[in-house]
Design a protein around this nucleic acid. Structure first.
Lengths: 376, 376
DNA sequence: CCAATAAGGTAAACTGTTTAACCTGATTGT
DNA sequence: ACAATCAGGTTAAACAGTTTACCTTATTGG
């Protein structure tokens, strides 16, 4: 049929007139007219190679510190690279290489989740470490449709990221299993899924809660109420467990669910106070709920800490500035983010196998706690 | 020299034995053994094309809703795509196409900047809108060496991002000019650089400050102190300006610098109170400083609002939960982030030219303000 | 003294898309 | 009836790097 081969389509972006590319000079000094000049073709590895009189393979090896290259050649190439201000295109590197050097951070869909210092500290820690390790971080919020459409796996399938860090999730977020199942590097921060074969970095909630209970009981408190977070979060269950162990009577009426928010913290405190007007201390599972409790007490004209002591958990930045300043357990969120990030990168590089780290916590004494009032 | 052409190196990853690639079936059902199986080659556009009996160009056009394709062909290809669960590799798309579809968010290096609700809200707004527009967001903190090494331009030069959003910067951050100079899409949020020819989205600080002053004066306050933020931030200067206009006497001793932090807010309040023991109101340039002021007053046994009223600025989430709840100006940070993101994407696509948006603000009355006490 | 090995570099295939240019058959205009 | 236009594809170059297999020399060993 086709005796004569069809005429070949010409190259896409190479006008036949300009066989000689612009010199490196013009690439280093872009057109100073700040107007809408056409995007002067960036200098690529081929230009560098030609200028240095070597192959692109050599330039690539210089860029990646491949020991195969002599010092002399390395110098020669580096000089040209520096003079031209050449920087390798990350996208081409990712396409060609194995890694994207991007880490994903997955958050649940709380409205304005990032405004929460809890997440903020963690993410700060993650970002700082990631930058130091030469990785970028992208944020992703796991909305219901995000999960439904399997977009969490798409992150890997479409090569958006090399690994993900999951923060703020609970046991009902079953999709977290998918990562391990697909063999994608993932680390959960501050939750624990022992059955799911998942990597994790957690703060030591048990020891923190223990310290709180010891401290309150030393102050003479016996009637203590607990405002806990959602029971489908592992760390929350740990706190409840410790509380139950430390209280003589296993009376459920000393527990109330504050759902981790100030709003529900107020309601929970109200509940506890109604049930037990003789309460002398409230232990809240996080600072936000503690703040709610203080607010509730203030509204009822109960003085803190004179009449009722309040202890928080987390030590978010502003708890030292509220009045009264909050006694709380310091959780090293920043460090947790740091560590999780580091471990994730190790996993990505295949250096590490199972991650299960625990970070220690400590009590911070401030103004919201005091001796239990003498029973009158 | 070389009469005989050198033997050509064989293809890199194609064992001559396996000319027939694995069928799509095996690609859809990955090896269920969760162990360390070798990474089963992902199905690419070529496999889809072959399976559907069309060219890769056609598949690409189907993916991009190119109108050149018939409904029949589209269906045929879609079917294969769905069956195989194929998803285009984003990296290859970026390399080939014009955009990376990644937006950068640049923050200053405050320690743990993200834990600050101010940034948190903004970033929440940015992320949500970006996701809706099909873009990813990466976080970058502008440490001194980051700027020194011109890594902010590297973001573009190495094709990490299509555009950047800059939040939390001040006039001394001269590097912000570089983006405009290089013709890179960039939008500044909540600061203003009229001389720098920079795109911006700002909240209406003037009107907000105006409302505060009106309100306080209506309550009978005359001796009002201002705790302002750093003067090298435009929005901060606006507040100072309004304050000066609205105060009868232009007495500098009613001003104190709180550097935007709780800590300095405490110090600034102390200064003001020492200089003017008859102060009846304190206006703080942000909620964090207002919180500091309240703390200072509490430490001195001054009741809020009975003796001194305090007004904040920003309306960060927890200011409604502190005691007394803070009267403040609500700034629509989330919406600002949203809008900035949207405008940025428009700029990237070249649809828009100069961005200069202002978002309105409003006073939120809570518990920290009241009638000026009668002079005794 | 010659084969074996090592060191240093190169050519070209490869990554997985998009897209410019070309092609073919059908429809339309004159 | 024949050229021009169009609709709907196809081909292969291009994107900008990395990597494999190979090719020279120079060095070493027996």
């Amino acid at each position: 049929m086709s005796e004569t081969p069809p005429a070949r389509p010409g190259p896409r972006r190479q006008p036949p007139s300009a066989s000689v590319r612009r010199s490196l000079k013009s690439a280093t000094t872009p057109p100073l007219a700040g107007g809408a000049t056409k995007p002067a073709k960036r200098v690529g590895i081929r230009e560098i190679a030609r200028e240095a009189g070597v192959s692109t393979a050599t330039v690539s090896m210089v860029l990646n510190d491949n020991p195969k290259i002599t010092e002399a050649t390395r110098q020669k190439v580096r000089t040209v690279i520096d003079r031209a201000g050449y920087q390798p295109n990350r996208i081409a590197q990712s396409l060609s290489g194995k890694y994207t050097r991007v880490l994903g951070v997955l958050l649940p869909t709380l409205r304005h989740a990032l405004a929460d210092p809890y997440f903020g500290e963690l993410i700060s820690g993650i970002c700082d470490r990631a930058a130091r390790l030469g990785h970028k971080v992208t944020l992703e919020s796991a909305k219901p449709d995000f999960i439904r459409e399997k977009r969490h796996l798409e992150l890997f399938d479409r090569r958006f990221v090399d690994g993900v860090l999951c923060i703020g999730f609970n046991d009902r977020h079953v999709f977290l299993k998918d990562f391990a199942k697909a063999g994608h590097p993932m680390i959960v921060v501050n939750n624990q899924f022992d059955a799911w074969n998942v990597d994790q970095v957690v703060c030591d909630y048990r020891s923190g809660a223990d310290q709180v209970m010891t401290y309150l009981q030393q102050l003479g408190h016996e009637k203590i109420g607990l405002i806990h977070g959602s029971p489908d979060v592992f760390t929350s269950r740990v706190v409840v467990e410790v509380f139950r162990q430390r209280m003589a009577s296993l009376d459920e009426s000393y527990l109330a669910d504050g759902h981790f928010t100030e709003e529900h913290g107020i309601a929970a405190a109200a509940e506890l106070l109604d049930r037990h007007p003789d309460l002398t201390a409230i232990f809240a599972g996080n600072d936000k709920m503690a703040l709610g409790a203080i607010r509730c007490l203030a509204q009822r004209g109960v003085r803190v800490p004179n009449e009722v002591s309040v202890v928080g958990f987390d030590d978010i930045p502003y708890s030292r500035y509220v009045t009264p300043a909050l006694t709380t357990v310091h959780l090293p969120f920043y460090e947790a983010g740091n560590l999780a990030c580091e471990k994730l990168v190790q996993r990505i590089r295949g250096q590490d196998h199972r991650v299960n780290e625990t970070l220690s916590t400590h009590l911070v004494l401030r103004e919201s706690t005091g001796l239990a009032p003498r029973p009158t």
